[in-house]
Design a protein around this nucleic acid. Structure first.
Length: 280
DNA sequence: ACGGATGTTCGCGC
DNA sequence: CGCGCGAACATCCG
């Protein structure tokens, strides 16, 4: 379940499980997750102690002793999981790191859109996947002036712009859908048509939805997430097409933007935004 | 059983 | 050349 909040949750888990501890053994079978790297190349991490896990957008950066590092992108279905001694491996485990006490940390990823990359820490910090990211949507939010300047020249719609990791890193389909609804901005509004006030609303809405999802994950729901328990949809509009808008009661609609389903309220999130007419 | 799913990248056409 | 769009990747779930 990886957008910024889930990736941050994974970051905290990895630090709790591994920070200051040695990796005794790594088993990384050949799979698409390696993107062509040799399974053997991961053995450089054997015996290394994890120093810290950083997150930039949806990318995790694990720093180890000996100037070593590991980049982890969770793709669509990636998860880091802890197996206690003697527990069975989860399905679709693509990598297993054995701790000194025998516990095993698994990287699980059925669809394998995620990936792992091992290398020297300094080299990984220059990796194109990291360098191409804009400021983190949570740790380094843009000012409304900065975001407005980035989008005011674009004819692309605002939903596309907010999903663009080079503008703001960490948002995905759910968080953008939720933020646009909260800010009452139409997802199809071209970037150049957003007022400064709308950009301000969006930034507030983004931090609100990220904070709320993060809080959900680190409370009881985090445990449910780990145990794969089914929890009811916690989002305000995502996956609620056909239900009444929680603000005005209008039926929520779903459209596709860049191949992704986009739920919005046709009344609260009208295309003209605050420009156009003052009627309404 | 068919369609859709939290992400990114590549290639094509304009 | 740059932009926008659709397809592709692989598997599961309702």
């Amino acid at each position: 379940m990886p957008e910024l909040p889930e990736v941050e949750f994974s970051r905290q888990c990895l630090e709790r499980w591994l920070k200051g501890r040695r990796l005794l053994e790594l088993t990384v079978p050949e799979s698409r997750v390696l993107r062509g790297a040799s399974p053997q190349s991961f053995s450089v991490l054997e015996g290394a102690t994890l120093l810290q896990v950083r997150r930039h957008g949806k990318l995790l950066c694990l720093q180890f002793e000996r100037e070593l590092g590991l980049l982890s992108h969770l793709g669509m279905t990636g998860k880091w999981l802890l197996s206690r001694v003697g527990e069975e491996a989860p399905s679709h485990s693509r990598a297993r790191f054995t701790r000194e006490d025998g516990a095993v940390i698994h990287y699980q990823d059925p669809r394998m859109f995620g990936w792992l990359k091992v290398g020297s820490w300094s080299e990984l910090l220059e990796d194109r996947h990291l360098r191409s990211l804009g400021p983190d949507a949570w740790d380094a939010p843009l000012s409304s002036e900065e975001l407005h300047n980035k989008i005011r020249v674009s004819r692309r719609n605002i939903k596309d712009l907010l999903m663009d990791q080079s503008i703001l890193a960490g948002l995905g389909n759910i968080q953008v859908t939720e933020a646009l609804f909260r800010a009452r901005v139409s997802p199809i509004l071209p970037g150049k048509d957003l007022s400064r006030e709308q950009v301000e609303s969006l930034l507030e809405a983004i931090s609100w939805t990220l904070k709320r999802t993060l809080a959900d994950l680190s409370q009881e729901e985090g445990i449910a997430y780990l145990n794969e328990a089914k929890v009811p949809n916690p989002f305000v509009v995502y996956q609620r097409a056909g239900e009444p808008c929680p603000r005005c009661g209008t039926k929520l609609e779903s459209i596709r933007i860049s191949g992704r389903s986009t739920v919005f309220c046709p009344h609260c999130q009208r295309g003209e935004g605050l420009l156009g007419r003052g009627e309404g």
